[in-house]
Write a protein that binds this DNA or RNA. Structure first.
Lengths: 215, 215
DNA sequence: GTCTATATACTGATAGAC
DNA sequence: GTCTATCAGTATATAGAC
């Protein structure tokens, strides 16, 4: 069924392209980077982008999909784990289940927070480029979390929940995507790259807003 | 000193270029739009970009500066107005002074919220493109508001204030820049284009987070 | 799978007529 | 001020040798 030696090394170029594309797209956006740039950083020939991914856009969706599934799986796994008890998950736990996997840079999934930055950039840069991908891999899991928030906060209207979830996304993207801005403004005092410090600030901040009475 | 008839109409092309550039940059980012696109939408010859603004980048900074000063002036005017009383401005008033001018689309300053979207896109797309402009027209006024927050919340450390101000920026940019996302997710129920509805949700949400004890 | 070479189109910018 | 024409550079993508 599969060769145990050759194929593992054979698609090294493919992985190198994915890695350098992820880095460069996150740094400069989709239109700010050329296929040549990506191939050059990867140390591979630029024609291989077409060979492996069809075109530049295919490379982007490949980068995107590589992280989407693990991210969503981890979010839902945490949410289920926190919901196991008799009283279900607390508001803080729902927030943590959504935020931690997006901000964490654990050994297994390097570049997870870089991926959050990538999403922040792309969501602004090109509204229709990834619309179907976002629809399937983002909006669907989002709805599950909106429901989880609604269970924690039965006093709120659906409209209130959506507004506050929208604000939550803003803080997440801005924290993941513009870490250097906060680091600079604080003179290095605040370090958004520190996942734990970040969650320690972010979760209570959002929880307080979510818990407000209905508007 | 000036001709009362000719010049007023003469720089119509310049204004058309500024208007179409603002719209297109906000829609597709700096690298996603060509000078030809902008000139075409403006109904003007593309060579006029160089004539009026030197180059494409000059056009962007012109768009930027056109809104920066009025925005900051209005923010500081509101802050001073709210601070007049004996006890100074409340937390909610400081938030309103910062947020309302950025989200408002009042008769005088059409496209103000589009400008907020422009800033959201550019801040991600090109980190060094506008660094000096941002430094001068954004970080300096920001510090004044950070100080105003600190006056309202003497129990917080400087570090806490900066984290929460960073979260505030995230909600503002995401609300101003991705309004259609919330409108879609809510099936039109939430309307981020409605400035008053937006502030009614956003100000209490942020105030609750700001008022928390120090972390 | 990986390479060179190249087709084709578009980019920002400019020179110079009017 | 506004235009045409165009330069030189770069973009994505592909054809075909190896």
């Amino acid at each position: 069924m599969h060769d145990t030696t050759a194929p593992l090394a054979a698609d090294g170029s493919k992985q190198k392209l994915l890695a350098s594309a992820e880095r460069l797209f996150a740094e400069r956006g989709f239109n700010g980077v050329s296929v040549r740039d990506i191939a050059s950083v990867a140390g591979v020939n630029s024609a291989l982008v077409a060979y492996y991914f069809g075109n530049k856009r295919g490379l982007l969706t490949a980068v995107y999909l590589r992280h989407c599934q693990p991210l969503n799986q981890e979010r839902l796994r945490l949410l289920r784990e926190f919901s196991r008890g008799e009283r279900g998950a607390t508001l803080e736990q729902v927030l943590e289940a959504f935020l931690r996997p997006a901000l964490a840079v654990s050994p297994g999934n390097e570049g997870r927070s870089e991926f959050t930055r990538l999403r922040a950039i792309l969501s602004g840069e090109n509204s229709e480029l990834l619309e179907e991908v976002i629809e399937e891999h983002f909006d669907r899991p989002s709805r599950l979390f909106v429901e989880a928030f609604a269970r924690c906060l039965p006093h709120l209207s659906h409209e209130d929940i959506l507004w506050r979830f929208h604000f939550l996304l803003g803080t997440l993207y801005h924290t993941g995507g513009h870490a250097q801005r906060l680091a600079a403004l604080s003179g290095g005092q605040c370090d958004p790259a520190n996942t734990e410090a970040c969650l320690r600030q972010l979760i209570p901040f959002l929880a307080a807003g979510f818990r407000l009475p209905s508007i």
